[in-house]
């Protein structure tokens, strides 16, 4: 629908512009029932984030790569442990917070809450740096794509991106809970 080549790298801004331009042609308000906007919508949602885009590319080019078995990019496994312990701390804190019904009890929890905010913010920076690294790797892989089509590396990157997008989602949600 978006007439993008089957490649791992896409420029997010350009993709959005294209989506908007095609929306102006295919949206049911403009094209009536004949417009296939749902398909365009689905295509855009699949391509805009690296994790879903690589998944889509693997489905087309190498479905076996989705079955797992490839090692995730280095460093991802270490992040996993840290993420778990942060989620655990947040969960414990929320329990205490939900039990607190009076201002003094909330005040007593303030040091812990602000400490967690700090930890989550630092952690978000780590995850963002890791993602930037993976994006750089993806760009390199894209440069040599036609010649090499390195499916193993693509599958590993897919794993890395999908863990990272899940974790950054959790961290954002955690920060939202801690700050509101």
């Amino acid at each position: 629908m978006l007439e993008e080549p089957r490649r791992p790298w896409l420029d997010a801004g350009e993709l959005k512009n294209k989506f908007h331009a095609l929306t102006a042609l295919h949206h049911p308000d403009v094209a009536g029932a004949a417009g296939d906007f749902s398909a365009l919508n689905a295509a855009y949602q699949a391509l805009r984030e690296p994790a879903t885009r690589l998944r889509h590319l693997l489905e087309l080019e190498w479905p076996a790569g989705l079955a797992g078995g490839q090692d995730a990019p280095p460093g991802i496994a270490d992040l996993f442990m840290k993420m778990g312990s942060l989620q655990h701390a947040l969960h414990a804190f929320r329990k205490k917070q939900q039990a607190a019904s009076i201002p003094l009890a909330h005040a007593v929890l303030a040091p812990e809450r602000l400490g967690l905010v700090h930890a989550f913010e630092e952690w978000l920076a780590v995850l963002n740096a890791k993602e930037a690294g993976l994006l750089e790797e993806l760009r390199l892989l894209d440069a040599g794509w036609e010649a090499e089509k390195p499916m193993n590396r693509l599958a590993a990157l897919y794993q890395g991106f999908s863990y990272l997008s899940k974790w950054t989602g959790q961290v954002r949600e955690g920060l939202f809970i801690l700050k509101s």
């Binding site: 201002p103 003094l104 909330h106 005040a107 007593v108 303030a110 040091p111 809450r113 602000l114 400490g115 905010v117 700090h118």
Partner: peptide
């Protein structure tokens, strides 16, 4: 009676942050 204490605690935590 503990309102002041509660404020004190929050300010203290924010100072540390």
């Amino acid at each position: 009676g503990t309102q002041h204490l509660a404020t004190l605690l929050v300010e203290r935590a924010m100072g540390e942050a």
